[in-house]
Design a protein around this nucleic acid. Structure first.
Lengths: 161, 161
DNA sequence: TTGACTTTGACTAATCTTGACATTCATTAT
DNA sequence: ATAATGAATGTCAAGATTAGTCAAAGTCAA
């Protein structure tokens, strides 16, 4: 279970800090020293693990008194999360990104386990395996959009199947 | 009872690890070294012996700190209708046929409303709109198959999808 | 001999690590 | 005021470290 890579360790450290607060403010150079890595690795961790899709927003300031502030965002109304995802859906979507988004929907209790498992399974590389990668990623984005739209309909009408 | 077959040996080794846990995480290169085989043989073993039909799901990550994680999933027993549908899935499927099948699943309470709505929306002609009809119907069949397969098992862990 | 299954390795892809260079900001010197 | 300086963070690409794919070659039983 123990991670072999530094990025996961730093991720856990930061998320542990965030578990008790809605935001943390760090010094990039201090954290880098603490974990004995180059400062830019902190940027890598943030860019790959503290994205809006993961439920985080990051602010920072350079120069004297600089900082990096990580905020855990709770979408006010959970239906907003669906709208935000729809609005920001890229043209193409890699499996890993899709997985992160589905996990976010599950954590927000917008999709149940059955629906979540379906989405994961349908959007997996194994299922969507197409000729070229771009076609696959494009289809994945389109399908996830359809999933999301079906969630939005549900808010308005309890349709009979 | 030793098999002359390295793949069988590796299979038994991994299943022994899984007998005491719901999941294991391995390093492909380490296992390969341990059994003195090329790394890609691990992929072969996994692809042929740790399939969802056999009750396993596999996740992996490349790069530094990469891993292969094998999860033992709970195979559901009430899947007669699902199994029949899987066995009789045609090469191509029209939207109308898909709709009928989804309704059957819903009436049998094998899928909930949320999952059912998702399936309807994703498999609709509007969503899958492709150039030619055969391509669309083929994709629809493949996607419904993925939906059905995800109905046949359940993960043991709840926190993560 | 054939056909299914296994073994192997060259090539590809994803992820992490590192460092050089760029940019921004507060403070200090002129 | 303005310029220079130092202190932070940002960007990006090369290199390192994994795992994935695919097809050719090998093995074995019917």
């Amino acid at each position: 279970m123990e991670s072999r890579n530094m990025s996961d360790v730093i991720e856990r450290y930061l998320k542990a800090m965030l578990s008790g607060a809605h935001q943390v403010e760090i010094s990039r150079s201090e954290i880098a020293q603490q974990f004995n890595c180059v400062p830019s690795q902190i940027n890598y961790v943030i860019k790959t693990r503290f994205t809006p899709e993961n439920g985080y927003v990051v602010e920072s300031k350079r120069g004297g008194g600089g900082y990096i502030r990580i905020l855990r965002v709770q979408v006010k109304d959970n239906c907003d999360l669906v709208d935000v995802m729809i609005d920001n859906m890229p043209q193409a979507l890699r499996p890993r990104q899709a997985q992160v988004m589905i996990q976010q929907l599950y954590d927000s209790q917008l999709v149940g386990q059955q629906a979540g498992n379906m989405m994961l399974n349908v959007l997996s590389h194994q299922t969507l395996d197409l000729d070229d990668r771009l076609a696959e990623d494009t289809l994945r984005a389109r399908l996830l959009l359809a999933f999301l739209q079906s969630l939005r309909y549900e808010r308005y009408t309890q349709r009979q199947l």
